[in-house]
Design a protein around this nucleic acid. Structure first.
Lengths: 198, 198, 198, 198
DNA sequence: CCGTAAACGAGACGGTACGTCCTGTCTTCTA
DNA sequence: TAGAAGACAGGACGTACCGTCTCGTTTACGG
């Protein structure tokens, strides 16, 4: 007769299974790319039943989102040094992760999944896109308030510019998403500041 | 006396079949979205053999690229009025087409296909992305030469900003890709011009 | 405490699916003949996935062999009454089954499949041909030993004669493969017996 | 107003095309067997249009029948030496041809085609099966009339025995269809003759 | 020597089926 | 209840041939 009412009845989920799935998924998308990434393949590689994956993630995309976030630092620690430096830090968190082709593949796949699944799109926005956009947006509006950027600036559009450049190059562009690339972005934004004028 | 040396041997491709495929594909992606878009489905809807599709397009993606371009005007005619107006025209060609959800879906699908097929990626760049980027790049560099934009400007990055904003919002964003949105983009770029300074 | 060590892992094959496939296959070959007999057609008619057929049978031919054997009595029970009667019984098992045009079609199809697939040929021999030939061969050699047939007889050749007559008429001949036909075969073999001589 | 009723208008059939088709078909069935024998394949190998094959033969089977008969000697020359020798000669014409695996394959294929095409079945009977059966039947009935075989004999059944043994071993049996095999057949038939009795 | 007409290589065409892969769900046994 | 295993209905893949068709070109004969 089971005692504890808190912990639900039955056998608890096995944490090793969780890890095995994430590891197998990461290895698979590293080795084969998104084209041959399937739940079936992950299960086989992880030595796990398909059901054990579906029990944890409602779709391929949800798994990929967790896979991208897995081990990713929180944003805040790097911040606090003001407009151009903090914006650079935000962008470099992404460029750094995406330098690893594995994570670049994951991020591309996440976008793919979002195109045909509205729930997935919401999830991607909430877990990956919005946190970074919000951070950047705040930095921009603060910079405007501080007179470091013109008061007429369309802050939302600047955020679109900055992240658009990153996403575009991830998905279709030729640019290597290096730290240097992030620096070029920020440099170009800085040209808008009154201080940059002759 | 041989007539046409040019005309290749064998029965020529049937233009009606070509049209039927494009029409069926467009209808299908309009009615069902990309998720249930299949070569099989297009063939059935067009009343055509699958082979007749594969004979013309090597992949689902290649078909989608042609589908997006089908009936799209050349860029040049709209140009010739100088930097901000021409840039706006270039962007509005896309925003206009993408206002139709059918073409928005096609364009999303094209990006999806490009993520798992390097040939497809090249095709998308060559047929859809690069022509517009080149047009915009030329406008930007001309504007710099004319002193309408600062000489220190990273033209390539401006192009990334401009198209990044469009692609990002197509794939993941909340912005409605209206003509007004294109205007906001151009307005923000104009803030860089020396003339806009106090 | 583990119960059954024997029961293999995973969901067991569904016996209803097995039956549905055999029934659909039989109906199909009855109604349409071998020409339009396809795995696809069987699956559709059985309301079953193609994979469920391939899981059980490696080829169309293997399915047909099982289909022919399905419900066919073992040979032995009918035997035990000595040379001419037992030989007749062996032959009549086949003529009886083949009186039903459905099973005649199946048997023809089985030969067809065997012509282009060595594995199939082995299967047909093992499951259909050899058991009957062995039974007949034993009866012949016993009859020789008992002096009912001449000691100089080439027993293997007699078996070839007897079954050759059946197979030939099934595949190419005009003879209706009735019980009477089997009787004619046995009668002709009996002419070899010393007892039949003047 | 066309004059000659005999020679029809238009370009006459090219005899080289005819030969090229037969040669390509023979080579194909020799090298690949019946499994991958297709009109498409023959056309490609012969360097000929598919239509040129369909113009001459109504089906794959009709082509195969001609292919088998191509270059085959008439039956008669070998005959005239009485019952056992002439029967042997008739059988050996077939065993000899069938020693070449190419022709064995053709003959098997011909039977295959006959199973799903009534016209083909008639053609095979008329052009390949019946002539030989008729020859044998005549020899048997003559032998009965001459007292070389018992008067009670079922001549048709003997023919079934003799050709059944050949066809069975061609299609399903282990016996190598050598001249020696034909001799064994005839030997066993001879056991029926009154002269063979003690 | 010219026009008609069939033959010819080539290859497109609507179809049908192939055997494989993957989806998301289910059913079994074992822990 | 979780978990490994694997069956299940379903859908699509890309390929191979079928037999028919439409091209441009070639080759004979009859006028």
């Amino acid at each position: 007769m089971p005692k504890k009412a808190a912990g639900r009845a039955g056998r608890p989920r096995d944490e090793n299974v969780h890890r095995a799935i994430l590891d197998a998924a990461r290895d698979l998308i590293r080795d084969e790319g998104y084209a041959s990434f399937s739940i079936e393949g992950v299960a086989a590689r992880a030595g796990v039943a398909k059901q054990s994956i579906y029990r944890r993630w409602s779709s391929k995309g949800a798994l990929l989102v967790d896979l991208y976030m897995d081990g990713l630092d929180r944003l805040e620690p790097a911040l606090g040094r003001g407009f151009p430096d903090d914006l650079l830090a935000v962008l470099q968190q992404t460029t750094k992760r995406v330098q690893d082709p594995t994570y670049a593949n994951i991020l591309k796949s996440v976008v793919v999944e979002a195109q045909s699944d509205p729930d997935m799109r919401k999830l991607v926005l909430k877990k990956i896109v919005e946190p970074r956009r919000e951070a950047a947006k705040t930095l921009i509006t603060n910079a405007i308030a501080a007179g470091e950027l013109p008061s007429t600036l369309d802050a939302e559009m600047i955020v679109d510019f900055v992240f658009g450049a990153v996403w575009f190059n991830l998905l279709l562009g030729d640019a290597n998403l290096t730290s240097q690339f992030a620096r070029r972005i920020v440099k170009t934004i800085e040209l808008l500041s009154p201080a940059s004028r002759p």
